[in-house]
Design a protein around this nucleic acid. Structure first.
Length: 509
RNA sequence: GCGAGCGUAACUCAGUUGGUAGAGUGUCAGCUUCCCAAGCUGAAUGUCGCGGGUUCGAAUCCCGUCGCUCGCUCCA
């Protein structure tokens, strides 16, 4: 992806523009049919927040339910639903208070933006030395109080990049040093804005008094709720390693920019499973979960050529990870992460042991030793998966010269499983259809529609992704059979009404 | 956060040099209809994203703001 020629890049952009029409169509369909609405729409909307409508919540629930069954209906994974609000020390231990902040500067001339901690990488070494000399001389002339502190850094044994980073982390020194640095993109001097910090955690206050000491955070990931409950769950469920804890829940990140419909939002839902293993077994379980998770998407109908692993190169790994990969889906706007699989090592539990003072060690009866388990994390985005399933399902087909819009959702995920349609709204057909509806409703999400031409009703169900349409016709009144129309092939089969439920349940397995 | 574009009915959009809004689709009611958005009749729906300004008069011009899209940036 990194080495396009200009021609290629233009081609890719042109392709993207064409493809983005699909996202627009899906956003439009989502609103029209009730999958997704913009949050607080009548007030002008709220940036990066979306509401799931009647069909959307069914689809989302089905995705979560399939995940839950796949992940926890087994003897080595337990479920959990932890509180969104957690003790603030959790986020100190996790590193989010410290690391979830990125001080950044903009060049006022060319509008380029740089992360303060990586700015030095854009500058040549000789240039850096020159900058530091000027900088120190300047401080001395101004008799700055920070001169001694700055000298301490500059004459330390750190490499040049580290020196820069340390100096830039200091609120007093950073503006002075920035004066010496010209913009790596356009070369302008003294063109940088003041460093601005973005902590991506939402803050709120515990209790009625809004003061600093009462600050707590909306969780930026669900994982920590699992980590801090590791020993609770382990002892309550009498699990032995290896075992996992799974959780579905909302998480919040105050993103600088939201983007691409549901893809980057400020409030989103995660489906996470943390698998606790012997440190020596980490690679084995990491590989195993990689394959299992990829298999899950395939089993629910995502096209194989739209999925890939994106392994993180070692120098790009997060502070807690030993090995990491993303499962990416090929969205119309490009490849995007829908799930992350990480070897988090013993980082999290060690930190919680350190910050809480409570031992997080596990006694392995087989090995007769105590250790902090390693953790293999599978972290899927429910909202992102939702979008991937929706995009993947969207098809436009030519049928008799007309365009048919059909969501080819896996039947397990389809919001409505069966529509029941009397061919015409008279001659005793509605009565039979109503009876079928009543019989099926306790078992399946069904939809009854008797108005207008049957063709129109079929197409409406196609747009909603309903896999089966049952139609009551004249023959029904004679031999107790109905037609069952399959969404993708549009083919029909005659089934006896008494066998309908079994027939459908079978198809939906 | 910066830059560009956009915002008119549920959806897609039109709306002339400023004179308070239309189409198609959809929706609803009815007729027709024995199987794939057919046809006929009728109906409902808009403070033109929001706020302010200019003007006798603003969907239209200006300013601000909110939202969406794209690019940059970011995504521990």
């Amino acid at each position: 992806m990194h080495f396009y020629s200009i021609e290629n890049k233009r081609f890719v952009i042109a392709q993207n523009n064409k493809q983005n029409g699909i996202i627009e169509k899906i956003v439009s369909l989502s609103k029209r049919k009730g999958f997704v609405f913009q949050s607080s729409e009548i007030y002008g909307g709220l940036n990066g927040c979306w509401d799931y409508g009647p069909l959307g919540v069914e689809l989302l629930n089905n995705i979560k339910s399939e995940w839950w069954k796949f992940m926890t209906y087994k003897d080595d994974v337990e479920g959990l639903d932890a509180s969104i609000l957690m003790h603030p020390r959790v986020w100190e231990a996790s590193g989010h208070v410290e690391n979830f902040t990125d001080p950044m500067i903009d060049c006022k001339v060319c509008k380029a933006r740089f992360r303060l901690d990586t700015l030095a990488e854009f500058i040549g070494d000789k240039k850096k030395e020159k900058i530091l000399r000027h900088f120190l001389q300047d401080l001395k002339e101004k008799k700055s109080k920070s001169t001694v502190f700055a000298e301490g850094i500059i004459f330390s044994g750190d490499d040049l990049n580290e020196k820069f980073t340390s100096l830039l982390e200091n609120d007093e020194l950073a503006p002075e040093l920035l004066k010496e640095i010209s913009c790596p993109q356009c070369g302008s001097k003294e063109s940088f804005t003041k460093p601005k910090s973005f902590n991506l955690m939402f803050k709120t206050f515990l209790g009625p008094v809004e003061k600093e000491g009462n600050t707590i955070y909306l969780r930026p990931e669900t994982a920590q709720g699992i980590f801090v409950n590791f020993l609770n769950v382990q002892s309550a469920s009498r699990q032995k390693l290896p075992f996992g804890i799974a959780q579905i829940g909302k998480a919040f990140r105050n993103e600088i920019n939201t983007k691409n419909f549901l893809f980057r939002t400020r409030e989103f839902e995660q489906m996470e499973m943390q698998y606790f293993v012997r440190p020596s077994d980490d690679k084995k379980w990491y590989d195993e979960w990689k394959e299992k998770r990829m298999g899950w998407y395939l089993s629910l109908g995502i096209a194989q050529d739209k999925l890939r692993f994106h392994d993180h190169p070692p120098n790009k790994l997060a502070h807690y990870a030993k090995e990491a990969t993303d499962i990416e889906y090929r969205f119309p706007f490009g490849w995007g992460e829908i799930e992350g699989i990480h070897n988090r090592t013993d980082f999290d539990l060690s930190r919680h042991e350190e910050y809480s003072g409570k031992s997080q060690k596990y006694y392995d009866e087989e090995l007769k030793e105590k250790y902090i388990p390693y953790i293999i994390e599978t972290s899927a985005g429910a909202s992102r998966s939702f979008m991937a399933f929706l995009v993947n399902a969207y098809h436009e087909e030519e049928v008799n010269g007309e365009t048919r819009v059909v969501l080819k959702l896996h039947p397990k995920l389809a919001p409505i499983k069966v529509a029941i349609l009397p061919l015409v709204n008279k001659d005793g057909m509605p009565e039979v259809a109503k009876k079928i509806e009543a019989d099926l409703r306790p078992f399946l999400k069904v939809f009854y529609d008797s108005k207008g031409a049957v063709g129109r009703r079929y197409r409406r169900q196609d747009e909603a992704g309903t896999p089966f349409c049952i139609t009551v016709d004249t023959q029904t009144l004679q031999d107790n059979t109905v037609t069952v129309r399959e969404r993708d092939s549009m083919e029909q089969e005659r089934i006896n009404i008494d066998e309908l439920l079994n027939y459908l349940l079978n198809k939906l397995r």
